[in-house]
C-alpha cells in the first residue's frame, strides 16, 4: 500500500514536469503549428545558465528568474532567426530545423560544459513529508513543483481567455490571414508565442534539474514523454497538456513499479494509441477546428 502511494506521488510530481514541458509544446503548436523538438535542448541551455549562476555563488531565486528570462529571449530569438524562415515551407521542414537545433544545442553544451552532468539545487527541502512512521515520496520541493506548474497553467489559461494579447495570440494562430486584416501583427504574435513557451520550458528545466542533474542529453527523455503527454491531451489545449502530463507520469510510475521499467514506454504507447483511436486529436480536442 505504501508502495502504491509512493508510486502515485512520484507519478504526480514527474507528471507535473511532463505537463510543464507539454505546455510549452502546446504554446508553440498553437502559435505556429510547429512541434518544437528543440524544446528539451533549449531548456537544457537555460538550466545550465542557472546552474552556472548558482555555482558562482548567486542565490537560487535569482538564478531561476534569470533562467526564465533567458528562456523568453531565447525563444523569441529562435523564432525570429530560424523559424520565421521555414514558417511558409511545408511543416516537415520546420520539424527538421528544430531537430537540427536540438542536435546543435546539445553539441554546444557538451563543448562548453562537457558531457559530465552537474548538480542543481532544489528550491525547498527534498526530504519527504513524514506520515505515520515513514516518509513519503513527496517533499516540500514536490509541492513547490506541482504548485508552480498549476499556477503557470492557470496564468496561461487566463492570458488566452481574458486578455486582448491572448485573443490576438489565438487569432494569429487560428486564422493568420484574417487576423492580419484586422490589424493584428501576426509575426509578433508568433514571436511572443515562442518566447512564452521557452520561458515555461526554462522554468520546467530548473524544476526538474535537482532530480535529473544537468547534462547535455539529460532532458531528452522528458521531452519525449512531454510530447506524448501533449499529443495525448490534445495539442490545442493547455488543460490537455496538464492532464496528459499527469496521466503519462502516473502510467510510467505504476508500470515501472509493478511490471518493470522496460515496459513502461510501451504502456504509454498503448494508452496514447487507445486514446487517439477514440479521439484522433487528443482528449481535449477542439472538435470545432475540423469543421472550420
Amino acid at each position: 500500500m505504501t508502495q502504491f502511494i509512493d508510486l502515485t506521488l512520484s507519478g504526480i510530481s514527474n507528471g507535473a514536469i511532463y505537463a510543464a514541458v507539454a505546455l510549452a509544446l502546446v504554446l508553440i503548436w498553437r502559435a505556429t503549428r510547429i512541434v518544437n523538438f528543440a524544446q528539451g535542448a533549449m531548456l537544457m541551455i537555460t538550466t545550465y545558465i542557472a546552474a552556472a549562476l548558482v555555482e558562482a555563488g548567486n542565490p537560487y531565486w535569482l538564478a531561476l528568474v534569470v533562467a526564465v528570462a533567458a528562456g523568453l529571449v531565447f525563444g523569441a530569438l529562435t523564432e525570429l532567426v530560424l523559424i520565421r524562415r521555414v514558417e511558409s515551407a511545408p511543416p516537415i521542414n520546420a520539424v527538421i530545423v528544430t531537430l537540427g537545433l536540438l542536435v546543435f544545442l546539445e553539441a554546444l553544451a557538451g563543448m562548453i560544459w562537457s558531457d559530465t552532468p552537474r548538480a542543481f539545487p532544489a528550491a525547498f527541502s527534498i526530504q519527504g513529508y513524514e506520515v505515520g512512521h515513514t516518509r513519503i515520496l513527496f517533499s516540500p520541493n514536490s509541492t513547490f513543483i506541482v504548485c508552480v506548474v498549476a499556477l503557470v497553467a492557470l496564468a496561461l489559461g487566463a492570458l488566452f481567455r481574458y486578455t486582448s494579447l491572448g485573443l490576438k495570440l489565438r487569432a494569429a494562430a487560428f486564422a493568420p490571414e484574417v487576423a492580419r486584416l484586422l490589424g493584428v501583427r501576426v509575426g509578433r504574435m508568433f514571436t511572443i508565442g515562442w518566447a512564452l513557451a521557452a520561458g515555461v520550458g526554462a522554468l520546467a528545466g530548473a524544476l526538474v534539474a535537482p532530480s535529473t542533474f544537468v547534462g547535455p542529453s539529460n532532458f531528452d527523455p522528458i521531452l519525449i514523454f512531454a510530447f506524448t503527454a501533449a499529443v495525448l491531451g490534445g495539442l490545442e489545449s493547455p488543460l490537455g497538456a496538464i492532464v496528459g502530463g499527469v496521466l503519462i507520469g502516473l502510467v510510467l510510475s505504476y508500470v515501472s513499479g509493478y511490471e518493470g521499467e522496460a515496459l513502461a514506454p510501451l504502456a504509454a504507447l498503448a494508452m496514447l494509441l487507445l486514446t487517439l483511436m477514440l479521439r484522433p486529436t487528443g482528449i481535449f480536442a477542439a472538435s470545432r477546428e475540423r469543421r472550420v
Binding site: D6, L7, S10, S211, T212, S256, G257
Partner: peptide
C-alpha cells in the same frame, strides 16, 4: 531513465 522512484520504493 530519469527516475528510480519505482525501484527504491520497492
Amino acid at each position: 531513465t530519469t527516475t528510480l522512484a519505482a525501484q527504491i520504493t520497492a
